[in-house]
């Protein structure tokens, strides 16, 4: 295990049923980093996040978070340790209000600073401030994505894993969401970002991993990946 890394994934093999989706995935993330995992549809990106957050069972390999081994722990224990998953497609509690959604993000917390955190987190999403009483399901796609990210932040994560925040959003809204993700990271929360929008992901990330058919095909600094001919050909269409 690399000294000082926040997340250390070794030889992770996981999937559903008989055939694994991920094979021997190695991944590592330093405190404060913004790391992107890119890859085509079906490459295993969401399964990877599911395996890290405990929603998908591991077949082999280990996951260390901070100084603890978290592979094999139940999802709620992983959340409590500070590794928080913002799943694909927002997954909001759509008939509950925005405020209730955000507060439920702090479900595992027992400290008294939840209300303060709500105010702090709303500064990232000013658009939500006057919609706290609306049912989450009635918001626009971009706003729903913001609620999903905000709900994740309410758990006070040390590492926030965001799955496809750009899904189904207008380009302008995607830019806004990515900006917010970057700001969150600059404020000290490490981010593992899974994205199909490779250009944007590599623009805001420090480093990146390319996932192909369940295996890590390439990794490196985001700037290098952006210039890499193979990446450009496969994902940027140039």
């Amino acid at each position: 295990m690399t000294v000082g890394s926040l997340l250390q994934v070794d030889k992770l093999t996981a999937g559903f049923g008989l055939t694994p989706v991920l094979f021997d995935v190695d991944l590592e993330l330093q405190p404060g980093e913004l790391v992107a995992v890119i890859g085509a549809n079906g490459a295993g990106k969401s399964t990877l996040l599911g395996a890290l957050s405990g929603l998908v069972r591991l077949e082999r390999g280990s996951v260390h978070f901070g100084d603890r081994r978290i592979s094999g722990l139940r999802p709620e224990m992983i959340v409590a340790s500070g590794l928080v998953h913002v799943p694909q497609g927002r997954r909001l509690f759509s008939t509950m209000t925005v405020q209730r959604n955000l507060l439920l993000g702090a479900y595992r917390r027992r400290d008294g600073r939840v209300q303060q955190d709500l105010q702090r987190i709303l500064q990232y999403f000013p658009a939500l401030a006057d919609k706290l009483d609306r049912d989450a399901g009635t918001l626009s796609g971009g706003e729903q994505q913001m609620v999903a990210i905000g709900r994740g932040l309410m758990a006070r994560p040390r590492l926030l894993m965001i799955d496809e925040p750009s899904l189904g959003l207008a380009p302008k809204v995607v830019d806004r969401v990515m900006e917010i993700v970057k700001t969150i990271n600059q404020d000290g929360t490490a981010v593992l970002l899974v994205e199909q929008d490779v250009v944007l992901a590599l623009e805001i990330a420090n480093r990146g991993y390319v996932l192909e058919n369940g295996r890590i095909a390439m990794s490196g600094a985001a700037a290098d990946l952006r210039r890499d001919p193979a990446v450009r050909k496969a994902y940027l269409g140039v």
Binding site: S53, L55, F93, S94, M96, Y107
Partner: peptide, 18 residues
């Protein structure tokens, strides 16, 4: 609240720590 979260969206309930 955990039960209501499960009713509304079980996967979301799991990721918030229920």
């Amino acid at each position: 609240y955990g039960l209501l979260a499960i009713r509304e969206n079980e996967e979301a309930a799991a990721v918030i720590g229920v």
